[in-house]
Structure formats: structure tokens, C-alpha cells
Design a protein around this nucleic acid. Structure first.
Ligand code: FES
Ligand code: FES
Lengths: 143, 143
DNA sequence: CCTTTCCGCAACAATAAGAGTTACGCTATC
DNA sequence: GATAGCGTAACTCTTATTGTTGCGGAAAGG
């Protein structure tokens, strides 16, 4: 599979939109993401359905944030992109009645649930405004 | 992509091998895993290279554990299967010089690193003997 | 009205990694 | 030498994301 880069891409572009303040077209966003407008519309469309951005067609249209950067967390974006668990436990379903397979799967599920809890906590604790601040700092430090 | 079920499968089969005590052929293991012997050899081969199992060819050959179940952790098995990080951070590489992309990626990397730490702790704390014990318990309880 | 600039969406092809499968070679035992 | 094993190469299949083309509709401007 090609790695799923939607979350990273959306963070990137949302922060840019927040910093620029106005409306951005799919075309311009596509350039930021080094891809084409259709991919942008597809992915931003999911965020629109969750009220993070809004779009307007026609001349002068484009995409706009509906809230400020400090009111959107990484978790919000993730939830808008996919519904279920973020980290799928690598379970086997070869022999569902086998107690050994069940015990193995159970161990993996619990471990991944703990990891996902950790991940969600970090995602929920980070707002796009913080990312924007980090970016400005990095840009000035030229690390 | 098809989900990666190698870890779960190996836990399953290693516990069975431990409980049965003797040598198992790829054919029998394939039946446990509801697949075919080549897949089994491919995957168990990785464990052999890390000293978890050993194989013998020729008549009467097969696979055998080199240590007892309480001396193999889930992490040992995972490490034998793949080298790098278990949880890949979903980073973007669209515009590597952009500070915003860098800041976004950095947030994701840190969050995933925390989750992976959690995961590794759980993996390292669980031995195959514990899974075997769980399995016996479940089997008797008929949950 | 007509052109231009937008988004919306359908319908593909491309990609990557695990899983499945077939085929053949080698070795140890009987 | 027949049989039962493993070892390995060389495919195909599957699945989710990404990339791409094409067309339709809407809003703004003239
Ligand atoms: S893409 Fe141009 S600066 Fe982030
Ligand atoms: S596969 Fe037969 S019992 Fe686990």
C-alpha cells in the first residue's frame, strides 16, 4: 500500500490556511501538497462534512476554515478522516474457535488499545495553533 | 493492503508448539493457520534467523522451539519479523523545506513514538507462557 | 447570455506490501 | 531409491491510498 499521508497533509494545509487567513483554492492547496486539485477536494471534503472547513464554488470560491487554529485539534482532523480505531490491532482470523488464537489476539488487542489511548491523548492535546507556533519558531531558528 | 497478520499468526503457532512440546511440520502448522506450508516456512524462517525456532529437513524433520514459552516475549517475535519501528508515523514528504510540514510531521512523530513506547512495553511484558495460560483458562471457562 | 473560475463527482490506472500458490531442488530417513 | 521434510524463486491476488482525466454545475464578471 502507499502510506496514508492524509492526516499529515491536512495538518499541513490547515495550518497554512490559518496563517494566510483567507480563502484558498484547491489548485493552490494542491501545489502546497505537491499533488493535484482532485485529491485535495477529496480529502478536504471529509473535513467539510465534519465542520472543520467550508467550501464555496464558482468564481472567487475556495476553502476556508470555520474555526480558528486554536480550536481544532489533531484528533478532530483524524476523526474527520476515518471513523474507527486509528491503530488496528494485527489480529488473525484463521481459526476463530481456537483458544490459543483468541488469547493471542486478546493480548495484541489490549496492547494496541493502550497504545491508541496514548496516541489519542497526544492528538487531543495538540491544536493546530501549536503547530503553527512550532513552525514559526523552526523557520526563524533555521534548524 | 491485506492486514499484516504475521505477528498474531506466529504467536498462535508458537504457543501451540510449546504446548505440544515436540516437532511440528510446516504442513500441520499450515492447517493451524488455515494457509499453506510455503507461507509458514517464509514466516517461521524469520524467527529461525533470530534463534526462536529451529528447523530440520528430511524425513521426520520440522520446526521446534529453541526455548521454553516463558523465555519468549511478544516483543521478541515482533523484532524477529520486522526491524524498524512497529508503528510508522503517517508523515508527509510533499514539501520537505516547508516549516509547517516539518512541524506537523514532528507532532505526529512524537505522538507515535509515545504510542510505540507504550506498545513495546506491553509486548515486552508478555511472554508466550502467559498467552498459553490465558488460552487454557479461556478453554475451560468456555467464554 | 457567455466566459471564466471554482467545486463535485464518477471512473478509472498506479502503487505497495502481505498473502497465496506453483514449481523445483536438496536432504535425511527408511 | 522412494518418501517426507524444508528452502527458495517466481509468480498472482488483494486492498487502501494516491494519482489522473473528464464532465457537470454554480457563482461572478462582463
Ligand atoms: S507548502 Fe509552501 S510552505 Fe508549506
Ligand atoms: S489452530 Fe487448531 S487449535 Fe489453534
Amino acid at each position: 500500500m502507499t502510506t496514508d499521508g492524509r492526516l499529515a497533509r491536512m495538518l499541513h494545509v490547515l495550518v497554512h490556511m490559518g496563517l494566510l487567513g483567507g480563502r484558498e483554492t484547491s489548485e493552490r492547496i494542491a501545489q502546497m501538497l505537491n499533488t493535484n486539485p482532485v485529491v485535495v477536494r477529496r480529502t478536504l471534503g471529509a473535513l467539510r462534512e465534519h465542520g472543520i472547513v467550508e467550501s464555496e464554488g464558482g468564481r472567487g470560491g475556495g476553502w476556508k476554515l470555520t474555526r480558528s487554529l486554536d480550536q481544532v485539534t489533531v484528533l478532530d482532523v483524524q476523526r474527520a478522516l476515518t471513523e474507527g480505531p486509528i491503530l488496528a490491532a494485527p489480529i488473525s482470523r484463521d481459526h476463530p474457535t481456537c483458544p490459543v488464537e483468541r488469547a493471542s489476539n486478546s493480548v495484541l488487542e489490549k496492547a494496541h488499545a493502550a497504545a491508541e489511548t496514548q496516541l489519542i491523548a497526544k492528538y487531543a492535546a495538540t491544536t493546530l495553533a501549536q503547530i503553527a507556533k512550532d513552525a514559526k519558531h523552526k523557520a526563524s531558528v533555521t534548524s
